[in-house]
Every structure is written in C-alpha cells, then in structure tokens.
Design a binder for these strands. Structure first.
Lengths: 130, 130
DNA sequence: GTTATTGGTATCCATGAGGTAACTAAGTTC
DNA sequence: GAACTTAGTTACCTCATGGATACCAATAAC
C-alpha cells in the first residue's frame, strides 16, 4: 500500500472516501439523485416523488448534495418562487453505479425476504426447543 | 405501473426494495461485506479490519446481515471460542455493485472536496458581501 | 486459584437524525 | 384586505443509533 499517494480506502476511518461512501448511503440523498435522473425538477415535485419527506429534511439533503457538487440549485425570479434542482456532471456520473445497486436491491428482494423467514423460523424453533 | 406483479420500486416507501436499498447504505453493513470479500474471517479480525467499531454494534450488524442471508455464522467448538463469518452466494453477488460504488467514491474524492471548498468560499463571500 | 483468551451480552448514556407545526416573503387573485 | 401560492426557515420534541464500559462463560496454562 502506497501511503504517499494516498490510496483511497473506504475501510480507513480517516479517508474522505469513507465519508463520501456513507453520504451516498444517506437515507434520502441517493433517492433524490435517482429522481433527478429524469431531468431538472422543482422542490414541490421532488417532495411528491420522494414520497413522505418533510420540507426541512429535503432542504437539508438538497443543500448537502449541492455543497458536494452533485446538484445545482437554480432560483427563478418569479412569484410564487420557482426553484429547479438538476444533476451536475458529477451527480450524473453517480447514476450508473447507483442504478446498478438499486437494480440489485430490486432483483434480490425475494431472496432476502426468504432468508429472513427462514432465519426467524429457526429462531422460533430454538426458543420452543429450549 | 402493474401493481399486481409488484414492480420493485425504491421510491415507494412501502416497497421492500426501499428497505433493502437503505440497509445496504447502513454505516457498517456495507463495510463488513467488503471485508468479507477476502474470505471467511473471525469476529476479532473483523473488528480490526473495520477499524473502530464497538463489539455491540458489530454484533448487531452481523446478526442483521445473517438474518438477511448475506453471511453465514459458523461456531467452532473450541475454547477460547472461534466464530467465522463468511459471505453467502447472495452476499457475494452484492460485491459487484458495491465495489463499483466504492470505486466511484474513491475516484471522485478530489472532485467532491473541490466542490465543497468552492461552495464554502461562495458562502463566506455572501456573508462578507452582506 | 489466578490469569489469559475469544466472542460476545448488559447497561447506561449522548448525539443527532428526523418529525411536527407554525411562520415568512412577495406578488396575484378575489 | 384576505387568501393562495412556492420554497423554504425556525423552534421544539422524540426516538433510535451507536458509543463507553463492565461483565460473563469455559477452559487451558501457570
């Protein structure tokens, strides 16, 4: 391992990649990015798409994504206000790995639910068996 | 949208794929899976690899991964005890998308840090400018 | 009988993530 | 002048996650 060239390593708690890796795993951030895949969208539309997120939390999520360079925020001088959010090139580049992960999750739902049932049954038997 | 055939959709809060998608984003789970990529490993070794995780939290993470069918837990009848954790086929299949995401994160660390600096500078100027 | 080892568990506690609800700006409509 | 609109902000509260610490079981070595 070449520590001079700072090899990024998610397992190192001091490596920025670990922080970034976990930011991607954020409850809302990755969902927002995937909604933005269909093009620019305004705040209220986004709220509807990402079902059940409070304005406060959505704002927090969007600010963080903006700060990290994943999205841009465009305020239109209108009344009532109109604000559009759009993926940057960086944000768009995240779509590919993120989509693969989403597809994996969607594909393996049955396997995981099955594993859970089997595990829970085994637990029950262990308890009954004493 | 065909609701009878249950099209998996991460954006639907009631879809199991959303839960699973977010479990992958768990602080420790995805890290553990990536460590297990190198083959079976015992509890104490795992703790050293995933740097700074308390035994309680590691146990919780491992139990959840086991329940969801990502890993197996093998207890050897020895004293002192030896417990090995190993990826299942399901868990191993997650490695591919997860690795792509990790590589993305590691590759884009500089871009993100740069975006952050630019954003913070802009914020500072806005404050100074009044 | 004391100590060391491994893989945990039990208990308590602090942080913070996220939810609720009310409020604001600013112009348009009624 | 009251109400509606969008895109938030603010204050307040709650609950779960995760951290710190101590302890335990079982046996072998000393």
């Amino acid at each position: 391992m070449d520590t001079n060239n700072l090899p990024a390593n998610v397992l190192d708690p001091d490596c920025p990649s670990r922080v970034i890796f976990q930011r991607i795993g954020d409850k809302w951030a990755s969902l927002v990015v995937q909604v933005l895949a269909d093009g620019p969208i305004r705040f209220s539309e986004l709220r509807k798409m990402v079902h059940v997120v409070t304005p406060k939390v959505l704002t927090q999520t969007l600010r963080t994504l903006e700060r990290d360079g994943f999205i841009t925020r465009t305020v239109h001088a209108q009344v009532p206000p109109r604000v559009d959010y759009e993926l940057t090139e960086l944000g768009a580049s995240l779509l590919e790995p993120l989509t693969l992960l989403r597809l994996w999750a969607e594909d393996h739902v049955p396997s995981i639910l099955k594993a859970r049932d089997a595990y829970d049954d085994a637990q029950d038997e262990a308890v009954i068996g004493g």
